[in-house]
């Protein structure tokens, strides 16, 4: 598979459902192989991104908490 693009979504400081909305907006323009990295501060983002992954079947490469933000790294694999 060819190397995809890396897209960063900065959703820090916006409340639910803003971060997931921003992720979905980026996802709509993405293609398989792309990597989307989302930064968020809303505490609901951590379970929500897991729920979105299980709903859509994309790949959660990394989900980690830093002091000031939650970072989710998603590999786009489920676009049809």
């Amino acid at each position: 598979m060819s190397q995809g693009n890396r897209i960063t979504v900065d959703a820090r400081g916006i409340a639910c459902p803003g971060p997931i909305t921003e992720l979905i907006k980026a996802y709509r323009n993405a293609k398989n192989g792309d990597v989307i990295e989302v930064w968020a501060t809303d505490p609901g983002f951590e379970p929500d991104v897991k729920a979105w992954i299980s709903r859509t079947g994309n790949q959660l490469v990394e989900l980690r908490k830093e002091q000031d933000k939650i970072i989710a790294v998603i590999k786009v694999t489920a676009k049809r």
Partner: peptide
């Protein structure tokens, strides 16, 4: 508003 926005996005 919250449910509508999230559901529409999904």
């Amino acid at each position: 508003g919250v449910i509508t926005q999230a559901a529409a996005a999904l």
